[in-house]
Nucleic acid binder design. Structure first.
Lengths: 257, 257
DNA sequence: TTCGATTTGTTCGTATGTATT
DNA sequence: TAATACATACGAACAAATCGA
């Protein structure tokens, strides 16, 4: 039979905050370290409770926060999993562009270019790497209902995605974040976006089939992984002639009593 | 001693979902009906548990969801309150415009006009009122660090805010949502925003001190109260020459272990 | 198809800690 | 200091979903 785990939290130790927060940090660290393989379930509530020497309710509270932050998903009868960055997840959690009727659809994409370059000072600062460090730059055009609506210029540190190259990227059968996750073990857990309006330059206007000078959304976006390290910079231009960026805050609608 | 309340939930009744969801609906209904006065605490956990005939943990789960949806705030030792739509709350919960360094500041405002008009068909549809129904239209210019950055055109149904007039609105010593809440008992609990890019027309450009045709953010926004009724339509234009609309999703940063 | 084992989801109750008045 | 109220933590029981024998 197994002996008491060394992970058990000392009962009298001085913690910065509540116990469940410490449990959450420990679980996050295990997720980061790759202790639990992709697509496999985490240990059950009862096992985690025993491992950390806390009650099931405390583990549940830690896991529930990670679920609400969309890091984990739990399925009754099955277990707790790292949320897979698949199409349905991305459309639901991260994709914000809707059509005139408010509908979201998964876009088709066309890879425009894939280059190995050196980080510009500006993007390097954002990614917290050295200016001139090797990066991969990917230009991608996204279509909704056959029309080009979104132009993306993705910059990722080469060190974070060792061995990434155009063929593998082009032939992936999944979302970009899903590719990061399954191929490189990099799970995006947070997105920050800064949205501005710009007059489209010739390149942007041409790709989005707009008149030069047309107003477009310019979205600068940073994606982070568990420990807050930025892993992707994306400059996105969105044509809002037929679409809008949708955002909602506050109380969800409640079903009738 | 008090007898069992008629609000008690039947133990064997058929509920659509879990018990805490029903408790949440009941609490929401009481909030809507004005049963609990503004600025006063709701009944304590134990009192609500007794009233609904459920355990404290079930009440806590219902209240916790309303807290996470920013409808309520709980203060230990004090009680549970409807979240006051004051400056700090609005800046934290709803205001999304940041300066070049990512800082949020509360804007100064200048009332441009206050008119009683009839709802246009388009806005009437959004507000779910009849075209031509009486509405109040308020134009407001917001300044950050002395510069005009946001132009707002607010449309609210007159029926929702009986007796609202320019002097009271102009002299309010609080946020607009705080005024709705304290003066008319209308608490905004949800915001939907559709963000587009536009070339500024002469009026918008003039107010925001931009060249005509400059790209600006055009944000169409609907505010709802508890039961999902829209109570305000706001068309907002934002100059992003010195500012950006900031949005973040996913896992919060965690303190070190 | 049925059954049993596993796992999460919900509900209950209790005890203790902490902040406020 | 005492009373009140929320916050945390524990443990237990049962329901519901899933999967494999």
């Amino acid at each position: 039979m197994p002996v008491a785990s060394t992970d058990a939290l000392a009962p009298g130790s001085l913690l910065a905050g509540p116990l469940y927060a410490e449990v959450k940090r420990r679980i996050t660290q295990s997720l980061m370290s790759g202790e639990w393989p992709q697509d496999a379930a985490l240990p059950s509530e009862a096992q985690l409770a025993q491992r950390f020497g806390v009650s099931g309710g405390t583990v549940r509270k830690a896991l529930s926060e990670l679920v609400s932050e969309r890091v984990l998903v739990r399925r009754r009868g099955l277990g707790t999993f790292v949320a897979s960055r698949n199409r349905d997840y991305m459309l639901d959690a991260y994709f914000r562009v809707v059509d005139a009727k408010g509908r979201k659809r998964f876009p088709d994409s066309e890879l425009l270019s894939f280059q190995s370059l050196q980080a510009s000072p500006r993007v390097a600062t954002q990614l917290r790497i050295k200016a001139g460090a090797p990066v991969l730059c990917i230009d991608n055009l996204l279509f909704l209902e056959g029309r080009p609506v979104i132009l993306d210029c993705i910059v990722v540190p080469a060190a974070v995605f060792p061995g990434m190259a155009e063929p593998g990227f082009r032939d992936r059968d999944m979302t970009i974040f899903g590719y990061y996750q399954s191929r490189f073990g990099v799970t995006v857990t947070r997105l920050d976006e800064w949205i501005r309006a710009e007059n489209a330059d010739d390149r942007v206007a041409s790709h989005l089939r707009l008149a030069p000078g047309s107003a477009v959304l310019a979205i600068e976006r940073l994606a982070y992984t568990f420990d807050g390290t930025p892993v992707e910079h994306r400059q996105r231009w969105v044509s809002t002639s037929e679409h809008a960026y949708f955002n909602t805050l506050g109380m969800k609608a409640q079903a009738e009593a």
